[in-house]
Design a protein around this nucleic acid. Sequence first.
DNA 1: ACTCTTCCTACCAACTAAATAGGAATACTG
DNA 2: CAGTATTCCTATTTAGTTGGTAGGAAGAGT
Lengths: 147, 147
Amino acid sequence: MYISARADYALRAMLAVADAAGSPGDPAAGGGELVKAASLAESQDIPLSFLQGILLDLRRAGLLNSHRGTEGGYALTRPPAEISVGDVLRAVGGAITSVRGIPADRTGYHGVATGLRDVWLAVDGAIALVVDRTTLADLLSDRATAP
Amino acid sequence: MYISARADYALRAMLAVADAAGSPGDPAAGGGELVKAASLAESQDIPLSFLQGILLDLRRAGLLNSHRGTEGGYALTRPPAEISVGDVLRAVGGAITSVRGIPADRTGYHGVATGLRDVWLAVDGAIALVVDRTTLADLLSDRATAP
DNA sequence: ACTCTTCCTACCAACTAAATAGGAATACTG
DNA sequence: CAGTATTCCTATTTAGTTGGTAGGAAGAGT
């Protein structure tokens, strides 16, 4: 599995939003506490203008709300416990398992290689099990217990 | 998980070698029945000169024996049941899970993103479970039962 | 009006993957 | 001992992706 810089940054940004919004105000999160892109970029060492494109993807995927203007910023659309790592990966990346750029379920093999497709589908399923089961809340609490 | 053309071709070539060597002569395989690169390239539609580089990798990884000359060719060093998909992937690819080119176990996160490393390690383990459990023999017999 | 911030588009540079070409080394054949 | 078929290896070209930058247009508050 290859995690691109885009996917890596997206996850770190989402975690930073969840953390910033959750710790001071209400722990249920939901839509308060707007976090500015600039502060996310600084706290996780992400180039600001690159990050803005990523935040846009996350918003279009329905994971973030945004607000412009002087007191603008970003907030999660759902509580961290209801956003999985897989949700974020799919928002920025597309398919999780791909063979030469083709999604695993669209591959076409012939002859002795016919069985390969099932291997990729099994891999895809195994990855999905991990990333869909792990939520942002899980990752934040891991940090609390083992700093 | 991204499967490169190199990895895809390597697997198809290995399957073709296993099949060509196993079907006519002894089903135990092992080292007889040399298969020429040209016939592998044709049966699986792989550019010949590109394939030759891949076969070289597989030989260096100890998965293939090669023989030069008029009656030369390639053969598996072990029976198909003892070669896993993971063996082949690692022979051509290096690490299975990587974050921006860095192997999963060498990633360094800080702050709220600390927990991400464990996610990638879990993914890596899940993938390994699938690809190390599936052997070339499994893939060939799948084909026999579902053509 | 003025300022701040998100939004959006276009672009550049570096890298990697994919494929090609051409030449050595090696082994069998007559 | 030539001659030929084949593996072996390296260098180069080509195309696509990725990571990153720049510059503004649109909206929101003061």
